[in-house]
């Protein structure tokens, strides 16, 4: 998993590595990276981190443009409908390219799988499952046992309908045979705060949102949604280890770079190379203080 710290370091490496003037089949007009979320959010930060090395490598201006709204579909649609010249790119979370088509079939103005060209995966972010400190659950296995013993009585919060956090909870219900009611919130902060107050039993959350409450002892992390443990939470088991029925459980949030479909392969390959250079194995050593890049889009 790529942490924010690693992304910053990787972006710096790409900056050092990149020479050049308008390369890879590009014109010398500015490149725009559209983001479907407000400035300062996780996807926006990643887009800005990669704008600099892209600028250095390609020798032309790279501008990040926030077009927030409509579950990030305004930005995604704009890229889908742009000329396929690599000058209009999308830094996307999984929602606008892999989930929204299942939720907004009649309202979507673009087909993400047909009208967007995947360029590079930038980051993968597991969710963490948290409960209130007084909840009698300390492990992933205990969480599933508790949910099975209290069918129909428990609830989980997420930062909104149809986001990966909700899907993570619903996948647990489906695979484990539990019946934990989803309670959507507008954003991750109230979603985790209401676990601490006891209004909801648990939350599927980004680590970034839950960490302050974990650190002050109000919340307990009891599971993660990746197959592997998170470096930041080495003592917290994956849900996949909680019960035999969950052996194949995994639900990840992720984000990455897209171009318009039919963008020349040479441009897509060059952009992929720039991102890969930034992410490659010259990552700084992880430290116990490093924070996850778990983020709300």
């Amino acid at each position: 998993m790529l942490t924010r710290r690693e992304i910053i370091a990787a972006a710096g490496l790409a900056l050092i590595a990149g020479p050049a003037h308008a390369q890879g089949g590009y014109s010398d007009r500015p490149i725009r990276i559209l983001v479907g979320y407000p400035a300062g959010g996780g996807v926006d930060i990643v887009a800005r981190l990669f704008a600099e090395p892209m600028k250095a490598a390609l020798g032309q201006s790279v501008i990040v443009e926030n077009r927030a709204g409509a579950s990030a579909m305004i930005a995604a649609s704009a890229v889908a409908k742009s000329p396929p010249d690599g000058l209009t790119l999308l830094m996307a979370a999984s929602g606008e390219v892999a989930i929204n088509q299942h939720l907004y079939r009649d309202k979507m103005s673009y087909d993400p799988l047909r009208e967007l060209a995947p360029v590079a995966l930038v980051g993968i972010v597991p969710c963490v499952v948290v409960v209130a400190a007084q909840t009698p659950v300390r492990t992933a296995a205990e969480l599933i046992a508790y949910a099975r013993a209290n069918r129909g009585k428990l609830s989980f919060s997420s930062s909104g309908i149809g986001n990966p956090q909700q899907l993570a909870g619903e996948l647990m219900n489906s695979m484990a045979g539990t019946d934990v009611l989803h309670v959507p919130y507008r954003g991750s902060a109230p979603a985790v705060t209401d676990v601490a107050t006891g209004a909801v039993t648990m939350s599927f959350s980004s680590l970034a949102a839950a960490l302050p409450l974990i650190q002050d002892g109000r919340l307990r992390a009891v599971a993660v949604t990746s197959r592997e443990r998170m470096p930041q939470l080495p003592d917290v088991a994956p849900l996949a280890e909680a019960a035999p029925e969950l052996k194949s459980y995994e639900l990840l949030n992720w984000f990455g770079l897209f171009a318009t479909a039919a963008t020349p392969e040479s441009i897509v390959a060059r952009l992929n190379e720039i991102v890969a250079t930034g992410l490659r194995d010259k990552r700084p050593p992880r430290s116990s203080k490093s924070r996850a890049s778990c983020r709300e889009s």
Binding site: S94, V97, A98, I99, Q101, H102, L103, Y104, K107, P112, L113, A117, P118, V119, A120, L121, G160, I161, G162, P164, Q166, L167, E170, L171, N173, S174, H182, P184, L251, W254, G256, E265, V268, A269, N272, A276
Partner: peptide, 30 residues
């Protein structure tokens, strides 16, 4: 991950998310 591998990943994830949305009968907010 190459662009082709990334395309396969996105397609696979979209299928998986679609199955979960359908199974849980998740409806979008209006």
């Amino acid at each position: 991950m190459s662009p082709a591998q990334y395309r396969d990943f996105v397609t696979s994830e979209a299928e998986k998310f679609g199955r979960i949305v359908a199974q849980a009968n998740i409806k979008a907010e209006n």
